[in-house]
Design a binder for these strands. Structure first.
Length: 734
DNA sequence: GTTCTAGAAC
DNA sequence: GTTCTAGAAC
């Protein structure tokens, strides 16, 4: 931003009298509005009042009306006011702009238009949550808000608008407002509007110089800070016309980059696939896929400046007129694209080996090194090997530094054909087969990426819908509060609200329809996303990600968990407490950092058991996890021990709750806190164990006989179950 | 996860 | 002949 010093100094010459102003801050959560206010109020000699919807309610959700009331009083007292709420769209600002007219004062806007990723990371840090889930949600909320962003214009009623696109701009604006004495005023007009901003642009150009010869510098205007835009102008020969920047009438491109897959050239390094043929295949498969990807982008990455594959692909893509906004090449380290390259790629592809093992060299070694051991663990949980031509998606645990530093959420392992006689499965010179396999590899890679994009779009929809349950709140203006809520500070109200759904077992039919639809959808869209989970196994995942779409089945929802009645209860009372953490598919994924989730799930489970116990004292509850669940998404079973259900039909049903395969929640929590993970008794042998009564331990030849026995057995439960709170009875609940 | 059903067990 | 299990398909 360029503040005109001379103009500032000329202020206040005509007016000696104190004249308050209204400064409306405009910015997403995490853009620095409160910091701005604090700074100005600390250094200024002018009396300021900060009108903050977050704090105005004294701990409760503030309202816009309260903010307006405080604004009116303050202006009457000749105090200037700082409106500290998001104010991202015109409608949200309108009432505050009107204050100018009613109090005959100037109304200014200070737009904190910082990169989305910065706002997101601040939002996450501010609320003290660094985990995957919270981070992802904060991101979704901030992104969603930014989509609705309407930058202020003078004709809304502002006399002055200051746009800040980076920290320096913000500092300058804080200095400007901080320096205002009671009688000063600032000149009217727009300041720091988007144009080729030297400060930011320099930073970008410095980077570009490093990674690519800088002989294609564009002179047209760009959006500073919009890192998503970087590659377009630099990585294709004849990148062509400016297609994206035109922000003529205030329509600004999003600050958050679209979903982006960075991938190395497959098989052309160690596997010695002919580079020219490979470039053909890349361009062809990209061309086939690019239009199926919405606004998502594909980026071919190579470390080397003189990369032959990049230049061949660039040329061929240009000939085919492939949209360079959606596909471009990039020179850089695939493990440092964001931190060193400023290119945010949420998904990266790994040129894997068939054993899916770390090390070796090249991209595989680099990615495993950068990701840390979590990638290996996560990969092993998905698959043990990979066939040439195939790809497999591995969600990156939030503990991985690739996740935290680079914003990579998924790694897709791809195995291409090998033409190198010194490596396994060499095709010798069979390029017929090699071409087919390489093509298959790229298509599989892009398909996996498309599945991730689909899943993330759904997630973002979900996050944007959830706050609507607070429909009494004030839409976007409450965004700061919403983010906080997303982070789990206040769930009780929502929980209470939804608790009313309990007992609506009739809704099962609806749920079953949902499940079927979901199965069909995921069968189509996510076929390759989770090869190890059948399409039918996605139902709980779907509920966890989109509880709002399953209102009839969900009996409780918070930021961390969803509770629903098991669709096929195996006992009189059988509910599932499902974690909402993306990537936490099953007990095997649970690590020490998930302890808070486990404890929350346990507490929620206990609460439900107690609720049921208060309705029926004779029940006994057990809380636990299946060692190897059939359904994706970590879920805690809260199940009464009568097992009186028509849905309990076979040995597996029984043994999954009555053998070591069932892991008590208390034990899981203890093991995870002591050993960092839970013991899994996954062996199939537990499923085929003889059928024994859960009370007297008597054996029974088949399910019907067992069921008739347990219907009458009144023996006490075995001693181990009575210890450590594994069983919950009425007396425990009191 | 369930459903369906062939064929084993009774 | 009927009951029950278990594997395939979804």
């Amino acid at each position: 931003m360029e503040v005109d010093d001379e103009m500032i100094k000329s202020i206040g010459e005509e007016e000696e009298k104190r004249k308050p102003i209204v400064v409306i801050l405009v910015g997403a959560p995490g853009s620095g509005k409160s910091t701005f206010c604090d700074h100005v109020m600390r250094v200024s000699t002018r009396p300021w009042v900060r009108v903050c919807q977050d704090t105005i309610g004294n701990g409760k959700a503030g309202t816009k009306a309260q903010c307006l009331a405080l604004s009116n009083t303050s202006l009457k007292e000749e105090k200037s006011i700082l409106i500290d709420r998001c104010n991202l769209d015109r409608e949200q600002r309108a009432d505050f702009v009107k204050l100018g007219e009613s109090h005959q004062v100037d109304v200014h806007a200070v737009v904190l238009d910082l990169p989305a990723k910065l706002c997101i990371s601040r939002s996450v840090k501010r609320t003290g949550h660094e985990g995957n889930l919270q981070g992802g949600k904060a991101a979704a909320v901030v992104n969603r808000m930014l989509q609705k962003k309407e930058l202020p214009k003078l004709n809304e009623g502002f006399s002055r608008i200051t746009f800040c696109q980076n920290e320096n701009d913000v500092q300058a604006a804080m200095d400007t407002y901080g320096a205002l004495s009671s009688s000063d005023s600032l000149p009217s007009g727009c300041y720091g509007e988007k144009k080729a901003d030297t400060k930011v642009q320099l930073g970008i150009m410095k980077f570009l110089k490093r990674v690519d010869p800088p002989n294609r510098v564009r002179s047209d205007k760009t959006v500073p800070g919009s890192l998503a835009e970087i590659p377009k102008e630099n990585h294709f020969v004849d990148a062509g016309q400016d297609q994206q920047m035109g922000s003529e009438n205030g329509a600004h491109p999003l600050d958050s980059p679209p979903p982006t897959l960075a991938f190395p050239s497959i098989s052309t390094a160690d596997f010695q696939f002919n580079i020219d043929r490979a470039s053909e295949i890349i361009v062809e498969t990209v061309e086939e896929f690019i239009n199926k990807l919405g606004n998502a982008r594909l980026v071919l990455v190579d470390l080397s400046h003189g990369s032959k594959i990049l230049s061949l692909v660039k040329t061929k893509a240009a000939i085919k007129n492939i949209d360079h906004k959606k596909f471009f090449t990039f020179v850089g380290d695939i493990t440092k694209l964001r931190s060193e390259g400023g290119l945010h790629c949420n998904v990266i592809a790994n040129a894997a080996n068939w054993r899916l093992k770390p090390g070796g060299g090249g991209v595989n070694a680099a990615i495993y090194n950068a990701a840390g051991p979590d990638l290996d663990t996560a990969t092993k949980n998905r698959a043990g090997s990979l066939a040439p031509g195939k790809a497999i998606t591995v969600p990156l645990p939030s503990t991985s530094s690739l996740f935290s530093k680079e914003g990579v959420t998924h790694v897709i392992h791809v195995l291409g054909p090998n033409m190198n006689p010194k490596r396994p499965n060499c095709l010798k010179d069979d390029y017929n087969k090699g071409t087919k396999v390489l093509r298959e590899a790229y298509l599989s890679l892009f398909e996996n990426f498309a599945s991730i994009v689909n899943a993330q779009e759904k997630l973002s929809d979900s996050s944007s819908v959830k706050p609507d349950s607070h429909s009494h709140l004030d839409g976007i203006s409450n965004c700061d509060q919403k983010v906080r809520r997303e982070d789990g500070a206040s769930n009780t109200e929502r929980n209470k609200k939804l608790k009313g759904f309990i007992g609506e077992t009739e809704s099962k039919t609806l749920y079953s329809v949902d499940v079927k639809e979901n199965a069909i959808n995921s069968g189509k869209k996510s076929q390759s996303l989770n090869k190890d989970w059948g399409s039918w196994a996605q139902a709980l995942y779907s509920v966890a990600m989109h509880p709002e779409k399953h209102r009839n089945d969900v009996i409780e929802v918070s930021d961390d968990i969803v509770v629903l009645n098991d669709l096929y209860p195996k006992a009189q009372k059988h509910v599932l407490v499902i974690s909402r953490a993306e990537g936490l598919d099953r007990l095997a994924d649970v690590r020490e950092e998930h302890l808070p989730v486990l404890r929350t799930m346990h507490d929620v489970g206990l609460k439900w058991a107690q609720t049921f116990l208060s309705e029926n004292e004779s029940l006994v509850f057990r809380l636990g996890y299946h060692s190897a669940p059939s359904m994706r998404q970590l879920h805690l079973h809260v199940i009464s021990q009568d097992f009186n259900s028509k849905h309990l039909k076979n040995k597996k049903h029984w043994n999954s709750f009555n053998s070591p395969f069932f892991r008590d929640s208390v034990d899981v929590i203890q093991e995870v806190s002591e050993q960092g993970k839970a013991t899994l008794n996954e062996d199939e042998k537990f499923m085929s164990m003889e059928l024994r009564c859960n009370r007297c331990r008597s054996a029974h030849p088949n399910i019907p006989r067992l069921k008739s026995h347990i219907g009458i057995c009144k023996s006490p439960f075995p001693a181990p179950l009575l210890q450590n709170g594994r069983l919950l009875t009425k007396s425990d609940a009191c």
